[in-house]
Simulated assay, not measured.
Amino acid sequence: MIRHLVLFKLNEGVERDDPRAVAGAAAFRALGGVIEELRFWECGWNITDRPIAHDFAINSAVEDAEALTRYIEHPAHQEAAAQWREFATWVIADYEF
């Protein structure tokens, strides 16, 4: 299995109630029921307020590297990620477990 973690940081001046952020969060929440390669899916807004904290996180798992590629290339994932490019930056980590 591969764990796929993503941490998002909203761009300067963008708040969680920005319509783009609200729509982006909804788009990612929906992916868990849309992309069959996902074996585990959760995402949500960070609940702590610390300078080093990111704002939104995705924690997911897929079977193998091929499934991860299919997930990343899936049109629904591409559409959701494109929304976030407008108002945030992110970092990822993928590891086997």
Rank of each mutant, 00 (worst) to 15 (best):
I2C: 08
R3Q: 09
R3P: 01
F8Q: 03
N11A: 09
N11E: 15
G13N: 05
G13F: 11
V14P: 03
V14L: 00
E15A: 12
R16H: 09
R20D: 15
A26E: 15
F28E: 00
R29G: 05
R29P: 12
V34F: 09
E36Y: 02
E37Q: 06
R39C: 06
E42M: 00
G44H: 09
W45R: 07
N46A: 15
T48A: 15
D49M: 05
R50V: 06
P51M: 10
P51E: 12
I52Q: 11
I52Y: 06
A53W: 02
H54P: 07
H54C: 06
D55M: 07
N59Y: 14
N59P: 02
N59T: 15
S60E: 11
A61I: 06
V62N: 02
E66F: 10
A67C: 03
A67I: 11
L68A: 10
R70E: 05
E73F: 00
E73S: 09
H74W: 10
P75A: 09
H77W: 01
Q78L: 11
E79R: 15
E79Q: 10
A81G: 13
A82K: 14
W84F: 02
F87V: 08
A88F: 04
A88Y: 07
T89V: 15
T89A: 14
V91G: 06
V91Q: 06
A93W: 07
A93D: 09
A93V: 12
